[in-house]
Simulated assay, not measured.
Amino acid sequence: MTPGTDHLAYAPQSVPHPGETLQETLDELGIPQADLARRTGLSTKHINQVIRGTAALSPDTALRLERATGVPAGFWNSLEAAYRTQEIREEEDQKLAQRVDWLSNFPLAELVRLQVLPSREKSLDNLLRLLQWFGVTEPDVAEDLWRSYRTAFRRSTVLSADDYATATWLRLAEHRARDRATQPYDKAALTALLPRLRALTLEDQRVWAEELPQMCATAGVAVVFAPALPKTRVSGATRWLTPDKVMVALSDRFKKDDQFWFSFFHELGHVLLHGKRLTFMDDSDNLSSAHGHEDPAEDEANGFAANTLIPPSHAADYQQLRAKPMPFTRIEVFAHAIGIAPGIVVGRLQHDGALQWKHGHDLKRTVTLT
């Protein structure tokens, strides 16, 4: 069952107003409306309005009915609350029915595949499901929220097609992260894990895909994998879900291990170096720019990732390799010597301009997330 949408399967389509139940109760007890009015101290007109549903059944009236009929006040209050809630729901649904085309902004096929929506139909039911999955009340509220994200990321506040897909990716990651159990965040514990996390670059995906989240969870980091969606450029994201739990979400946008592992350690750089109140969503520009960013936090996270994967203690050896990266066995020897996957070294050499982008891809391993 998709988180946050299961209630839609049993939400009542209509709720009778409390007056109907009150009239049935009076009929069973053999109490005329005029007699009930005398017993409760209310006017016959008011009792009649409550029964017809034109007057609200207030808590005061509920208490009087309890004393006069023996039916608990809480029961009457519940009936009234359910009826008024349904009235408001119907009014809101009528408004939202005019916004079903909003669904066209989203990767509906992916949402169906991910079991967020049951179909690609542009219907009120699907719109309600999507809004609840995002945890927002209406489309305009969602878009205002995403505009605030763009401001935080130093981007234009004008939403484009990829923003809807990116918001979908981020929300999917959040749901997965909230479901992942973690210990309270411990910066020292996470720092101590770095060598072991770095060593996972040598493992096959079937190994690191299981061990990476488990290891990070012991330090309060919920690592989740979310496949890259069409029209998204996002490689990773960091968001503090609570003061003791941080999400690190990773995509498979580039499908190669060098980009994946650089993204992972880039996000850990945000976790270790930057504030708990900040959210970072990183795309290819953040991860690959050779120039300074408007937000220095991105440069700091890039530096952290680069120095973790190829430590400064190996800088001299790396510079020799950079000067003469071929034949490719030189790359493999260097990678083995410092204990990381060769594909990561290839990616670093390509980024530094020492190796053409078309060279060395056989040393990279494919990453595919689900």
Rank of each mutant, 00 (worst) to 15 (best):
M1G: 14
T2S: 14
P3V: 06
T5Q: 09
T21I: 10
P32W: 04
T40F: 08
L42P: 00
I47A: 01
I47K: 07
V50P: 02
A55F: 02
A56N: 11
L57A: 04
T69L: 10
G74Q: 10
A81L: 11
A82I: 00
Q86N: 15
E90P: 00
A97E: 14
V100S: 01
Q115K: 15
S119H: 02
K122G: 05
S123V: 04
L124G: 07
L128C: 03
F134V: 03
W146N: 02
R150Q: 13
R155Y: 02
T157V: 15
V158K: 07
A161H: 08
D162F: 12
A165C: 07
L172D: 11
R176V: 07
T182V: 15
T191P: 00
L193H: 04
L197I: 10
W208I: 03
C216K: 02
A217C: 08
V221D: 09
V234E: 13
G236C: 05
L241I: 11
V246G: 05
K255M: 02
Q259E: 14
F260H: 03
W261T: 06
S263R: 00
E267Q: 06
V271Q: 12
G275Q: 14
M281P: 00
D282H: 04
P296C: 10
F304V: 01
Y318Q: 01
Q319K: 13
K324N: 14
P327C: 09
V333H: 13
P342N: 06
G347D: 12
Q350A: 10
H351S: 11
H351R: 15
H359L: 14
H361F: 08
D362F: 10
